[in-house]
Amino acid sequence: MLNLLRSPKPLIQHLLIGDRILIISSILVILYLFHTLWSNEQAAKVQIRLGDTVYATYSLNQQRDIPVHGTMGTAVIHIAQGKARFAKSPCRNQYCVHQGWLTHAGQAAICLPNQISLELIGDSKPYDSLNY
């Protein structure tokens, strides 16, 4: 038995057809689960966009302040227990801060002067684009 573990060649030789099928199918299941669970966004997240690029995407299951350097200065995004908001912004009107907490997938807050936007992302988007 110890011999078998030390050199892999005899191990493969000892495998029966059923073993092979079992190994292959378990690898396939793992690959499949990896792809479905890893790439799809199951948990709610917040996507931060800066200008025309996605700056970062964070899980909402944490308590955290994230500084983001916009065109005007540094804004602070606050994440806490499934919610996110603009906590601080260098813009004059503070519309983004006044928007308050975003709690549901699809909700968004935009700071036009500083060119930063937040959007909560869930399993599915409730709509493709927002009319305002």
């Binding site: 308050g100 907490w101 549901h104 909700q107 807050a109 009319n131």
Partner: peptide
Amino acid sequence: IGGNIIAIGQHGDKPWRVGIQHPRQPTA
């Protein structure tokens, strides 16, 4: 563009779906 939206065709096999902003809440 700044909230004004126009659609061409659709989103796969479904129509494009848009949300209308609530004027006083950060939600559709």
